[in-house]
Structure formats: C-alpha cells, structure tokens
Amino acid sequence: MTVTGLGSSLAYLLSRAERSVNRGLAAALAGEDVTVEQWRILRALADGRGHSMGELAEAVLMPHPTLTKAVDRLIDRALVYRGPSAGDRRRVAVFLAARGADLLARVDGAAAEHHRLIAAAFGPERTQQLMRELESLVDAIG
C-alpha cells in the first residue's frame, strides 16, 4: 500500500498523533483546571531541584515567552515559585510549591488513566514499543 499526500509525511503523522494524544490528556486534566503545558511544567519541577527558565523551556518543549506566561500563571495560583538557584544563588530558579505538589499528585492520576486508555486502545506492548521508538528517533536526529 502506497501512502500519498500528507499521510506520507512523518512530520505530519507525528503532529496528528501528538494533537490526538494531547486532546485526550487536556480533557483528563481539565477537571483540575490544568493545561497540558502546565502539567508538563509541574511534572518537570517535581524533581525538587529547581530549574532555570532555560532548562525548563527545553524540558517542557515551550518557547521562552510562552513559558514565562505559563509560569507566571502558576505563580499566581501559588503552585510554583521563583527562588535562588542552589548551584548559584545569583541565578533564579523555578520550584514546585507544596500546593503544586498536591495538585500534581491529583492530576498525575488522571494522566496515568489517560495513558492506560491509550494502551488499551493501541495495545500495551505496541504503546511501549512506540515510546521506545520515538525516544530512539529523537536520539538519532537530535
């Protein structure tokens, strides 16, 4: 079977899959008034180390200006805060607040349930294989 048109583009197919997955994840997170982007930020900060805005932008796949607005909204909700970096007290880092950790604990369950639904629809082994293959693709093309 030969695929033509947009369906023959890897970039297009990856974008379609990403939109579909994120649409379902957004619906799962909506009950706690958390966007997919905000969940990614909270998840990245859950390691407790604090991250510079540059590190965070790279980790959560967001451009700096968009990330700054998202972090400001999370600060307004007392979910994260800015403070001195542990490695260099002159630098500012973003940290997960206790209230943010509580919210993250609640929404992580919704995110895990969303992942289970995908695995049930696509197959658990195929889902794990797809995740491994996508990681390999990212590693290969940098």
Rank of each mutant, 00 (worst) to 15 (best):
E58A: 13
I118C: 08
E113D: 10
A78T: 13
V92E: 07
R132N: 15
S8Q: 12
L134H: 11
S15W: 15
G48V: 11
G5M: 05
V21E: 12
A93G: 03
G100K: 02
A30S: 05
A140E: 05
L117K: 10
S52M: 08
T66I: 06
K69R: 15
G100S: 03
A105H: 08
L134F: 11
R132S: 10
A17F: 15
T68Y: 14
A111K: 03
A105Q: 13
R106T: 08
S136K: 11
F122V: 15
V80S: 00
L104S: 00
T4L: 15
Q129H: 14
R82E: 01
L6Q: 13
E18M: 11
T2E: 12
R106E: 04
E37I: 07
A110N: 01
S8M: 12
L6S: 11
E58K: 14
G142V: 04
L45Y: 04
P65T: 07
R90V: 14
A101K: 05
G31E: 07
G48P: 01
S8G: 13
R116E: 05
R90I: 05
L134R: 12
V138N: 03
G50A: 13
R90D: 10
A140D: 05
T4F: 14
Y12V: 14
D102F: 07
V107I: 05
T66R: 02
G100C: 04
D72A: 03
V94G: 05
G100A: 00
R116A: 14
A44Y: 10
R90P: 04
V3F: 15
G87K: 13
L56D: 00
A98H: 06
G123W: 03
L74E: 02
R90K: 14
A57I: 14
G50M: 05
A59I: 09
L96A: 04
E133S: 12
L25V: 07
Q38R: 09
E135P: 09
M53G: 10
W39I: 01
L42D: 06
E58R: 15
P65W: 04
G7D: 11
V3H: 12
R126W: 11
G5F: 08
A78I: 13
R73W: 02
G123F: 02
R89Q: 08
